[in-house]
Amino acid sequence: QAEAQRLRAAQIVPQLEKEILLQENALSLLTGTVPGAIERSGTLANTDLHSDLPTGVPASILSRRPDVKAQEHELAAANARVGIAKAFMYPALNITANGGLNSFRSDNWFNMPSSLFGLVTGSIAQPLLQGRKLKTQYEIAKTEREKSVIGFRQQVLIAVGEVSDALAEIEKLKEEVDLAGQRVANLQKAVSNADKLFASGLATYLEVITSQSNVLQSELDLAAVKRNQLAAEVKLYRALGGGWK
């Protein structure tokens, strides 16, 4: 039993070393550096967590998220397209040097050659004749704008939901860490008591092995919960578009 327990603990070591190597490579890729060992400033047990987290997150913070910002720009573009489409419905007469006509004055309006007059009047009448087409384009632009509004609202709702999820996860993981820490402390006392009982002949060595195995598993569980707690803070940081300070 003792040898089996030792081998079980030894088996965990290469698994953790593999995860460390993969995580270091992922971090190197994320930062644009060559994969390699990354120095650590501490251990998981003494890693500081934020004690003061935002409980009431203003919606304006969510505008820093890339997905929300993209929808915001899309809405602005849709608004602009509606304005452009509406402007096309109001024809404007721009007189330029055309066909030798260098200027336009009201006193020579009727003195213009018929060919030029036909050209100018044609340019004025053309948008009017295409009124139905322009109106349709305007309605399409308004519909696209409504779609952009819906998309923007939906993206903001998704962002709010992700922030709420991360806050709830952090809060509950705090409770899990506290309970897991208490469990580890109690099981460590059990190991000490089992050792004393075995030395006094009041317990078998199997009981000592069992208590040691329980401590190992509880310590692994505590490490996993702490890791999840750190990951939850990263989720909150990302959900807020880069932090809350």
Rank of each mutant, 00 (worst) to 15 (best):
G241T: 02
E162V: 06
A180T: 08
L197C: 14
F104W: 09
E39A: 14
V34H: 10
E169L: 12
V13H: 07
F152E: 08
V149K: 07
L93M: 15
G56S: 11
I140P: 01
A166G: 08
E3M: 09
G241E: 01
N79H: 09
P127T: 01
V234S: 05
D48Q: 10
I209H: 06
N94D: 10
S106C: 06
Q217N: 09
A223C: 06
F88P: 01
P58K: 14
I84V: 07
L49P: 00
T204L: 14
L62E: 07
P14E: 03
T47L: 11
Q217F: 06
A92D: 14
L187A: 00
V215M: 04
Q229E: 10
K86D: 01
P66K: 06
N193F: 10
L179F: 08
E171R: 13
L216N: 05
S28T: 05
L30K: 15
A10N: 10
V68Y: 01
M89A: 02
A239M: 02
V68G: 02
V177R: 03
S63D: 13
Q11Y: 03
T204W: 02
A78K: 00
A185F: 07
Q155W: 03
E207K: 14
V191S: 00
L222G: 04
I209M: 12
Q154I: 01
T47F: 09
A141Q: 03
S213E: 06
A194Q: 08
L44A: 07
Q137D: 09
L230K: 04
A37C: 09
D221E: 14
L129G: 14
P35R: 04
R227V: 05
Q71K: 14
L129W: 13
N102W: 13
T121F: 07
L202E: 11
E17S: 01
G201S: 02
L62I: 10
T31N: 12
K189D: 14
E19Y: 01
S51Y: 00
S114G: 00
I12K: 13
L197E: 11
K245H: 03
A45M: 12
G118I: 04
R183G: 11
A224P: 03
L21K: 12
G131E: 05
K142L: 11
V191M: 01
Q1Y: 13
R238Q: 10
K235L: 00
L75F: 04
D195C: 05
Y205P: 01
V82D: 01
D52N: 11
P91V: 00
D178A: 15
A239F: 02
V184S: 09
Q11F: 02
D52L: 12
R64M: 05
N98S: 13
Q137L: 05
Q1G: 15
L22I: 11
Q188P: 03
P66E: 07
T136S: 08
S41R: 06
E176H: 15
E39R: 10
Q188F: 03
G36F: 04
S200A: 15
A97M: 13
I170Q: 03
R238Y: 00
A80M: 05
W109S: 10
A78R: 01
